[in-house]
Simulated assay, not measured.
Amino acid sequence: MSYSIRRLSRNDLGAYKAIRLEALERHPEAFLSDAESFAALTDEEIEAALEKLTVFGAVLPDGRLGGINAFLRAQGAKERHRGWMIQVYVRPAHRGSGMARALCEHLIAHARAEVLQLHLGVWSENYAAIRLYEKLGFEVYGTEPRYLLVNGCFCDEHMMVRFLDKAPGEDK
């Protein structure tokens, strides 16, 4: 499978909206945002989010997106050393292809120039994602019980971190 990974811009608005809405509809337990709220956003609001975040896409030869993820840097003076990997999603047809890993590695490389540590949250029952993040050097540092309430069910979230200024597994 051929694809390239690049930062998305306002020119990618339609493709980003489609894949983000798909992610929120298919996996409501995996994201803090919900499909209905996202669908109600204006194009201008989504363009502003694309500018605030650093959103990467795995762009297929036909221009569609096979997957996305986003980087958000903390803004406070005391927390600018921290960043977040958010909005990680790969379409079902591309799962198991290495696309998710490539997107995450691309984001990690970007984050190295921005922050000292990278955080993420992952639904505690998303075992494939947890395995991938562990292979990439992330470690669980806590679990937030009942993080989300989705369709009447509570979802716990593992909080994970990777220290970019240390080798994976090295003491904090």
Score class of each variant (00 low, 15 high):
77 A>Q: 04
85 M>T: 11
56 F>I: 01
81 H>A: 08
102 A>H: 11
58 A>Q: 07
33 S>W: 06
50 L>H: 00
85 M>A: 13
81 H>R: 03
76 G>C: 04
59 V>F: 10
77 A>W: 07
78 K>H: 10
32 L>N: 05
34 D>M: 03
83 G>Y: 03
71 F>N: 02
59 V>T: 09
68 I>E: 01
40 A>M: 02
32 L>E: 12
81 H>Q: 06
76 G>H: 03
59 V>I: 13
49 A>E: 14
92 P>M: 13
46 I>K: 07
66 G>R: 06
36 E>Q: 13
99 M>V: 01
58 A>E: 13
83 G>H: 01
37 S>Y: 04
75 Q>Y: 12
42 T>E: 13
49 A>F: 00
102 A>G: 01
75 Q>P: 00
94 H>E: 14
33 S>K: 09
84 W>E: 12
90 V>A: 06
87 Q>F: 10
90 V>D: 02
64 R>D: 15
49 A>K: 11
77 A>L: 14
56 F>Y: 14
64 R>H: 14
73 R>P: 03
76 G>S: 15
48 A>W: 01
72 L>D: 02
95 R>S: 00
90 V>S: 01
46 I>M: 06
90 V>R: 05
92 P>R: 07
102 A>T: 09
49 A>R: 15
69 N>E: 04
71 F>G: 02
63 G>A: 09
82 R>C: 10
95 R>F: 05
83 G>T: 08
59 V>Q: 13
70 A>F: 06
33 S>Q: 14
89 Y>R: 02
69 N>P: 00
48 A>Q: 09
79 E>Q: 12
95 R>C: 10
59 V>M: 10
91 R>S: 12
83 G>E: 04
93 A>Q: 15
85 M>G: 08
45 E>G: 04
62 D>W: 01
69 N>D: 13
70 A>N: 07
57 G>N: 14
38 F>K: 07
72 L>E: 12
54 T>L: 09
45 E>T: 00
70 A>P: 08
86 I>N: 12
46 I>W: 03
54 T>K: 07
100 A>F: 04
93 A>S: 12
36 E>W: 04
90 V>I: 01
